[in-house]
Design a protein around this nucleic acid. Structure first.
Lengths: 129, 129
DNA sequence: AGAAAGGTTCTAGTTCATGGAAGGTCAAGG
DNA sequence: CCTTGACCTTCCATGAACTAGAACCTTTCT
């Protein structure tokens, strides 16, 4: 499939997909006309990249994560080690995100949404850790 | 407290903290010697920034989120609207992150960590959505 | 006092894209 | 057949969010 299609399916812009190819993150086949040609498997990788980037992993971290998908020659012990390290990081991010959500949720629930001066922003958020 | 101390407590580099001041995200008091002077409340905001940035929110989004802490003059209806919008976004991120974690966790559990060729990367990850 | 540690500003470079120009390709309709 | 418009190509420039380094000042430690 063409890049436009892959872009739509992955949530990454065509520009970004070409950029990722430039930096060697995901190399695409080429059709006879020179157009990039993406398989469903490529699209899965692109979506995976979109997700991990939007969740705060750097391109280099994504490269590592992607190697879990792609590098069949790698010894699986290596793969496992990388995956474990990333898992720890993801769990930390999950905890932080959950905390952030609970904080905001508390705010939304307790804020009356009018001009009364006791909107719980200050008490609930500004003061403590 | 000095910037080094604030840096340590917030997890942001001193460089980054100065940069955030440049772009008006968090303005610091100044001591008599010209050094920036941070309160505990400033540190909380810095930590908050560190977290939200690392979770993939843009600086502008962080500015909004931060306004939930700081902007006491704002009508609470506005605050509530912003908070609600961010909540939706956070919930989406949480779902994605959870999915990513489950995928990796499955990999780690099922990979035997040796050279056997049936490391479940390909079946478990590369193929399906 | 002298050195190390940490602060200041300023300019420049890096990473991760994103926008736009100039031009080639393709599928559909007149 | 030929044009129109969507989609593709490369290349160069710009933007966002840092990050590094130089040059210099302030505090602290011995």
């Amino acid at each position: 499939m063409n890049i436009g299609n892959a872009s739509e399916k992955s949530g990454l812009s065509a520009k970004t997909i070409r950029y990722y190819e430039d930096i060697g993150l995901l190399l695409a086949d080429r059709a006879d006309n020179g157009y990039r040609d993406y398989s469903m498997s490529d699209v899965h990788r692109l979506r995976f990249l979109q997700r991990s980037r939007s969740l705060g992993f750097s391109v280099e971290e994504c490269r590592q994560l992607l190697s879990l998908y792609s590098d069949k020659d790698r010894e699986s012990a290596d793969v496992k080690a990388i995956a474990k390290a990333k898992l720890t990081e993801i769990d930390r991010k999950l905890a932080e995100l959950t905390e952030l959500r609970d904080t905001l949720r508390h705010l939304v629930r307790n804020c009356h949404g009018d001009k009364r001066p006791d909107c719980p922003i200050i008490e609930g958020l500004a003061g403590k850790d």
